[in-house]
């Protein structure tokens, strides 16, 4: 039987042993005190039962997917929508604009809907058009004309409410996020949906 001989036996053994000892370790490109680390922004966060990142993300995903499935949006080719106010009727501070911004981003990414400037961004829009048309700094042929803005077909508005109950050591929080799509011309509510979240905590945990 002809066996192939390896010419450098010592090299092979050294290579094998060094691989075993080093564990393929490489240095991470970090500079850290050891107390701070990056985590997963999409993780399920249950540090307290106040409104948190998981609630915001869950509501945004649930509402955007439900809205994209509504027949009224599917019937029109890329309808124009604007976001009105989402009222916070809970007992805690919740940035509802952040929720609607997430919903809007998700719906926009689908490419099935367009969004018109909402009331909170209207002043910036007016300022920009004024700057282009009335300061005399821009070529007339290159400036965006006044009076060409498009009115939204629909507006999105909603509320977030909560019910908080305490019994002995247990605190129960129930959130309800309601969203509606209203036809701006007719005033007809064309779609509505709700997302409910229940969070219960035990006081002895804290």
């Amino acid at each position: 039987m002809n066996k192939v001989k390896f010419p450098y036996p010592n090299l092979a053994i050294t290579l094998a042993v060094s691989l075993a000892l080093t564990g393929c370790a490489t240095k991470s490109p970090t500079l850290s005190s050891g107390n701070v680390e990056y985590g997963d922004s999409k993780t399920v966060e249950t540090l307290t039962n106040e409104f948190g990142s998981t609630d915001l993300q869950t509501i945004a995903e649930s509402m955007s997917s439900s809205l994209l499935q509504s027949p009224v949006l599917a019937a029109k080719s890329r309808p124009l929508v604007t976001v009105a106010e989402v009222k916070n009727r809970t007992s805690e501070y919740i940035d509802t604009k952040s929720i609607t911004d997430s919903i809007r981003s998700k719906i926009l990414k689908s490419g099935l809907v367009r969004f018109a400037v909402d009331t909170s961004a209207m002043q910036t829009q007016v300022d920009e058009l004024t700057r282009q048309n009335q300061t005399g700094l821009y070529k007339k042929s290159k400036s965006k004309k006044l009076g060409n803005m498009e009115g939204a077909d629909f507006r999105i508005e909603g509320t977030i409410t909560s019910i908080v109950k305490r019994a002995d050591d247990v605190k129960d929080v129930y959130y309800k996020f309601s969203l509606q799509l209203i036809d701006n011309e007719s005033g007809v509510m064309e779609w509505a949906d709700e997302k409910e979240i229940r969070k219960t905590s035990n006081k002895s945990m804290f």
Partner: peptide
């Protein structure tokens, strides 16, 4: 050493 011994060594490592 033959080739098979080398293979085993690297696999174990």
């Amino acid at each position: 050493i033959n080739k098979s011994v080398l293979t085993i060594a690297i696999t174990v490592a």
